[in-house]
Design a protein around this nucleic acid. Sequence first.
DNA 1: GTTTTGTTGTGGGG
DNA 2: CCCCACAACAAAAC
Length: 607
Amino acid sequence: MEAATAATAAMVWFRKGLRVHDNPALDAGRRASARLYPVFVLDPRYLRPDPAAASPGSARAGVARVRFLLESLADLDARLRRLGSRLLLLRARDDVADTVCAALKDWNIGKLCFESDTEPYALARDKKVTDFAMASGIEVFTPVSHTLFDPAEIIKKNGGRPPLTYQSFVSIAGEPPEPVMEEYSELPRVGDTGEYELLPVPTVDELGYGDISQEEIPPFRGGETEALRRMKESLQNKVDVSAFLELHILNHIHQEWVAKFEKPKGDPSAFLKPATTALSPYLKFGCLSSRHFYQCIQVVYRSVKNHTKPPVSLTGQLLWRDFFYTVSYGTPNFDRMKGNKICKQIPWSESEELFVAWRDGQTGYPWIDAIMIQLRKWGWMHHLARHSVACFLTRGDMFIHWEKGRDVFERLLIDSDWAINNGNWLWLSCSSFFYQYHRIYSPITFGKKYDPNGNYIRHFIPVLKDMPKEYIYEPWTAPLSIQKKVKCIIGKDYPKPVVDHETASKDCRKRMGEAYALSHLDANPTKGKTSNSLRRKISPGDKATSDASNAKLLKCSQDESYQNMAYRTNKTDIFCFCPQDCTTASVNSFDAVAEQSRAPEAALFTT
DNA sequence: GTTTTGTTGTGGGG
DNA sequence: CCCCACAACAAAAC
């Protein structure tokens, strides 16, 4: 087999990383050959409508995220065309990896470039493609560019185990690599695509999700162009503040916002102007480079006297995103309770009735229901709003398994990101990272603290719009005469509470205490096993590249992690890429950010 | 073994 | 706005 030369063609395979800026895979592709094939593969298993789903969309994604993806692809295509290229959109018949392999062969590709992805299903998918490429003599380049750092590098530096606290993560992480921001005016032309059918980017209406004309269109437009515009708006000026102010004053005001950003201090009820940057969807799809964002924040920091610091600062949010990526990469069965060594084993209860009430925004607690309705309509909620409903479902009130809530978030959040979403559910359910289960968010007073008039509730639950503010958070306490007057009878027009918070939360505390006591007995009967020794250790002899570490991971065929990968891959193969919040990124996906109501954010339960 | 630390609780007081 | 009591946890740091 011959090595790739400038005479053979190169392919850039997009999955996440839907951008031109800071794209090392694209950069390598354009230097490798005079012919470059930029490819994205639509996955029918990800996009196929599922009429049985609880809301419009596919089994794996709600309409909001599908729409965001399609918009991002259209924007990527437009930006590539401006450089004399275009996006080659293929539709997988069945398996995305098979489609990529076929194109590699048919187009006689000599070099394949794609961004490294550490999610289990992506590792399995990419291994399939990489194995094929290697066997065919195709050179493969898989740079790390979705996260600030290479998770495999961090794990190696930490002695083979992922750091399990934020502080230890930050202390070994150091400064992230510089983004690749070289300007260029054109890309190599696209080679002959033979008989391949090249699809235009479909609209969400064309995908057959039924009548979605009544669906509220979320305030997030997908794509790199919008991502960069929003980042600029968040970091600089351009706010709709006031046209009368001098520009430098605006800049000052805004930079102050950036410099003073503190994550736990945001207003979760602010929805007209989210309290965070709301950049998490863009980080999740890679429309915005986390490294570019990081550097831009540094520029602002250098222009001001004081600024907040991690973990609460804006850069701190990006580090949280990397933290969850790293832990998820080094922890087998990270997305489950069973077989997950860093997850408390808790006997969650089964109640389909309570779960459905939570999922559908029918708990009878307006603060909880409004958040779940915003999730369904927008695919995005404030980070602390995510905390409220996650706590309510799990350890706070319903005592239902965090995996059930995780699935709902994963499907509906635009910014849902596997590592960040699972990490935040582990956190909020007090299954890992955070253990103070007696601290429970009140479904009544927590929201009231930020929004005493209940404007957020009135917006997302119109039937409550005329409820006096004295009762808006507890409408079941309103006298019947008032209920009649505002045309909202509790138990008829709006549900009665499905649980009593006072007694339910007390019961949850008790059950958590019992589960914790048991976990002590389980984990420490002989004092021989520390949590460290239970964690996977990647041997220091591994090569430093993530490829080598990936290969190592995949070789553990007896390892539960591999079973997990195979399981996920067969069952889903989500996009052709994957999903943070940072700020969390993203619960990150639980994710976002801060203070005065203003700019939009970064992810958690997302980045 | 003991002390400290941990992004993001509530309710009361000032 | 801050501070405290409440009741209380695991893991890291010492």
